[in-house]
């Protein structure tokens, strides 16, 4: 059954709208100050004065067991994608192919992947360096906000009268946001590891290793995780 959940990642460093893992709708925030759609527990109050550089993970849904189950499934899918990266082995043949392509130089596709990788790594850096906010609303009514750093320092402010199912929804929001951040870090580290591995095997150096190869490896890493993230069971409504 498809249920309605809005998942937004407001990224202060993003320049355009997009999506993350086919799950979160990403949109630029206002890095200079106030978020575009700042939330408060009470309507009409001044919006928050700051916008976290680590971004805002915002979940809005009509609370139900089906919504909670869907979000749990999405978090699990991210875990599965991360596990696939752990288990993925960069074979000699694949490494040789990547090294050969890197030596051949950049192509339009590789340049596109280089741009995507750069944006991704910048986003990963923001997620790791700064506190992120995780906000949950029930059809627009603010339930809770958690602030969390890369290491897990966690500060949660709850609406005092939140009901048990609403509290459970925010726990799922937090779970999903943290699973996403872990996937981002794992993906970035896998790219770095694989680049190092291919460069060592093929004794690559200079622009071939530092400029062309990362874009190629980025494509190969995405080939591991996206079939899992985009399978039929992983539908965002």
């Amino acid at each position: 059954m498809s249920v309605s959940v809005s998942l937004q990642y407001i990224d202060p460093g993003a320049e355009t709208t997009g999506e993350l893992y086919g799950l979160w709708q990403t949109q630029p925030g206002d890095i200079a100050g106030i978020g575009k759609d700042a939330l408060s527990f009470d309507a009409g109050l001044p919006v928050r004065p700051d916008m976290p550089l680590g971004g805002v993970w915002r979940v809005d849904a009509a609370v139900s067991e089906a919504v909670e189950a869907q979000m749990a499934g999405q978090a699990q899918r991210l875990v599965n994608a991360g596990r696939s990266l752990d288990e993925a082995v960069l074979g000699e043949a694949q490494a040789a192919t990547l090294a050969s392509a890197a030596k051949a130089g950049s192509t339009v596709e590789v340049q596109r992947d280089q741009g995507l990788l750069t944006a991704f790594l910048e986003q990963a850096g923001r997620q790791v360096q700064y506190y992120a906010w995780v906000e949950t609303t029930d059809r627009g009514i603010m339930l809770a906000r958690s602030t969390v750093n890369w290491f897990g320092h966690l500060d949660t402010i709850w609406r005092e009268d939140a009901l048990a199912p609403q509290r459970a929804l925010h726990q799922r929001s937090l779970e999903l946001a943290l699973a996403t951040r872990l996937t981002t870090v794992k993906t970035a580290l896998t790219v770095v590891k694989w680049v190092g591995l291919v460069a060592r095997i093929a004794t690559l150096s200079g622009p071939a290793a530092l400029v062309v190869l990362p874009g190629l490896v980025w494509g190969a890493v995405n080939d591991v995780i996206y079939p899992i993230l985009r399978s039929d069971l992983f539908q965002r409504s």
């Binding site: 009470d42 009409g44 402010i157 709850w158 609406r159 005092e160 009268d161």
Partner: peptide
């Protein structure tokens, strides 16, 4: 873990 009371005259602020 912290809580905000809602519905007060002064409004609820983080």
């Amino acid at each position: 873990t912290r809580f905000v009371e809602v519905g007060l005259d002064k409004g609820a602020k983080f």
